[in-house]
């Protein structure tokens, strides 16, 4: 029988059918039709799930981005302004200090997050007793379940040596008053600690899931070969978690460059000792709503977007995020 029969042309299936004795054409056709039907359903569900996300992505992600690009290159009257808005924001006396603030915060936070989340996930995964492992994961997750603003409110009390439950720690570090705790050189660390406390728990749970994906046979084989926990971690678990670590890096980078809630609340709670123009996102907010300069605000947003995209590209490349296994 000729496999290149016209019956097979109607579908895009290229199936190599071993046509031998006992295989009749009607049975073949029926089997192919069933497979077509199943695959069609398969594809339909995928598109259905993705379409809602795509709609929202376009409506709340892409369209606002395009609008921001439009605003960034026009003036308030709508006429083309070239790079005037960008020049204006680069010359703003607050821009460079804010870049420094966000960069310092990101450096401390990203490095700390990646190291500690992976470390804690490895430890939690290595715990033999299931009840202990489950409890640990639950406890890690709880701070992240609080909404961002309420977590910061909690930290406003923790940071004030006069009312903090860990005031002995603060005083041991030589900090007697709230103003000392939030002095400018401490702020990147303070914000990194707050962001870590709220964000790490969820990522630990995700990394734990990623570790579960690693086949136990490989782990067994390594153990039989005499590798200890550290060697297993570095040689097997970490390389296989590359993609998830890269994913965590990108999501945290996106959130970190947009630092806003922590400095904004701390500014109000500290009676303006922490300025309300600490981070780039706050500067964009001030441009839009205090100086009524939406074009400048859009320019700052575009700068942030470009920076985040560039750094994410590094993570994608190094982490092999889109590689197929």
């Amino acid at each position: 029988m000729d496999t290149r029969s016209s019956n097979l042309k109607s579908s895009a299936l290229s199936v190599e059918q071993p046509v031998g004795a006992g295989t009749t054409r009607p049975v073949l056709r029926q089997a192919l039709r069933r497979k077509n039907h199943l695959d069609a359903n398969h594809g339909k569900m995928g598109y259905a799930f993705a379409s809602l996300y795509t709609l929202l992505l376009v409506a709340f992600g892409i369209v606002p981005t395009l609008y921001a690009i439009f605003l960034a290159f026009t003036s308030s009257s709508g006429s083309f302004a070239g790079v005037a808005n960008f020049v204006q924001i680069f010359q703003d006396y607050r821009f460079l200090p804010d870049v420094g603030h966000v960069a310092a915060f990101l450096a401390i936070w990203l490095v700390g997050l990646v190291i500690f989340v992976v470390l804690l996930a490895l430890i939690v995964h290595g715990i033999r007793a299931r009840w202990l492992s489950g409890t640990a994961r639950f406890l890690f997750y709880i701070p992240g379940a609080l909404a961002g603003a309420s977590s910061v409110m909690l930290w406003l009390f923790v940071l004030d040596p006069a009312v903090s439950p860990v005031s002995f720690l603060l005083r041991a570090m030589g900090l007697q008053t709230l103003v000392q705790t939030i002095s400018p050189q401490h702020l990147p660390i303070v914000f990194a600690v707050i962001a870590f406390w709220t964000g790490a728990g969820g990522w630990i749970v995700i990394m734990y899931g990623a570790l579960n994906n690693i086949s136990t046979e490989i782990m067994e084989a390594a153990r039989i070969d005499g590798a200890n926990a550290v060697q297993i971690a570095f040689s097997i678990q970490l390389p296989m978690m590359r993609k998830w670590i890269a994913y965590m890096g990108i999501m945290s980078l996106a959130a970190g460059t947009q630092l806003f809630v922590e400095p904004q609340l701390l500014s109000q709670a500290s009676n303006a000792v922490v300025g309300n123009d600490y981070s780039l996102n706050q500067l964009a907010y001030l441009y839009a709503f205090q100086q009524n300069n939406f074009n400048g605000s859009a320019a700052i947003s575009i700068v942030l977007l470009v920076a985040a995209l560039a750094l994410s590209a590094v993570f994608v490349a190094r982490g092999g995020l889109f590689e197929r296994d």
């Binding site: 895009a12 299936l13 069609a40 398969h42 594809g43 339909k44």
Partner: peptide, 8 residues
């Protein structure tokens, strides 16, 4: 190769 009907 699993392809569904391209028209769908």
């Amino acid at each position: 190769l699993l392809h569904s009907n391209p028209r769908r």
